[in-house]
Design a binder for these strands. Structure first.
Lengths: 214, 214
DNA sequence: CAATGAAGGTGACTTAGGTCACCTTAAAAA
DNA sequence: TTTTTAAGGTGACCTAAGTCACCTTCATTG
């Protein structure tokens, strides 16, 4: 049987800034949960019972429209926490956002009952929570900027640049219709814009992947 | 000389849920600041030195695009705190959002140096902060929903309904070009859509104001 | 190997919404 | 009272982007 990393080692490597006492509490009270690729960590209307710290994999956060259309917001990576699970957990409320594992993902689940104590007792935790909020808030603001002030081609460029940054690869394994979905556009439009970008030498198109060159 | 309400009375009436000790600390350390209509409370790139609790007036939060175009996000009213001033204050960072007083406004300024203690010592403060984040986060999500999934006429309806709710009057004192600005559209488009709504009996148009009938 | 399905390409068409030019009307200033 | 200015109305036009229909090209699977 292959040995998987312990909670302690995850915390040590991903959350080094946490004070020792806080680490101890998280190790004692957290449980690891595995999600398959494609599995939902959080669904519109679902009630949260824990806060999630991502320790492995990749999670995609998106908003769902009335007709089932999706709208990509941002990714969560190891070392990130789900801001929404924190807020909702604290207030015991439901969320209006979907979180889906895009790779096999592991999350450290922290029971909501612990939130009060953590906030009060551990300064590094409280900073971590505020930091998380701030970052996600800023991401949402960027999203708003893009959809309200930018045209589709600019949004597409931004999207690809973000994929390149977040996934850390020039070979973007994504189809045109997935992009269209994420941007709430349509495949044909995306294909046409991508071709223009290719002509400008910004990328090269292949079946099932895009080589991002900028 | 007319007597203005004391900090204590503001806190008592607007933040009744705060624990007595917290109220005392805020009264001792907060200072009232007055802003004229039109004055900025916060500007893109400005460094925050205090967190602001609104105690009188009305504040409009908006995002600014590259070409100076504005984009309305939400209002702050007495009893609200500026979520952004809290985050930025804590992290000593700059904000990318504009906050402008639309009416003469008074804010209770809480020095950032106090934030740590408040968070740690007073549960009601920490709840208040989380609540503030959550609400603003939700507002941003609604904004995203609107601009990405809805067409202009739906957005206009939503906008007017929100004005009616937030400002608590059926007589909306606003010009067509102001609306166009807030929605990042153009006056002609808004005028045409408003006329259609009038024909449907949802409102009646006048010079400088709109009677909202729904 | 043939067949099926997913990915992608392309032309023709539609439409919401932005832009331009110019007009009228009401209110405030002079 | 006249003048000026801001608010609003309107037709003509343009364009980005969504939609439809149909095609080609791979890759997988029976």
């Amino acid at each position: 049987m292959s040995k998987e990393p312990s909670i302690a080692s995850y915390i040590e490597s991903l959350f080094p800034s946490f004070e020792p006492e806080l680490k101890r509490v998280l190790i004692e009270n957290g449980t690891l949960k595995t999600f398959d690729a494609g599995e939902m960590l959080m669904q519109t209307g679902q009630n949260m019972r824990s806060t999630i710290l991502i320790v492995e994999g990749l999670v995609k956060l998106y908003r769902e429209g009335d007709e089932g259309n999706e709208f990509f917001m941002y990714y969560l990576q190891p070392g990130n926490a789900c801001a929404l699970s924190m807020i909702c957990a604290t207030r015991q409320e439901t969320s209006q956002v979907m979180a889906k594992a895009v790779e096999p993902t592991k999350g450290l689940m922290i029971p909501i009952s612990l939130m009060d104590t953590l906030m009060k007792e551990y300064k590094t935790w409280y900073y971590f929570v505020l930091e998380t909020y701030r970052n996600r808030f800023e991401e949402l603001l960027t999203v708003i900027d893009n959809i309200s002030f930018k045209s589709m081609d600019e949004r597409l460029e931004f999207y690809l640049a973000k994929q390149y940054r977040d996934l850390n690869t020039r070979k973007l394994q994504i189809t045109h219709s997935e992009i269209a979905n994420d941007l709430n556009s349509s495949r044909e439009v995306i294909s046409r814009l991508l071709k223009k970008m290719e002509q400008r030498g910004e990328l090269s198109l292949h079946r099932n992947y895009i080589s991002y060159l900028k």
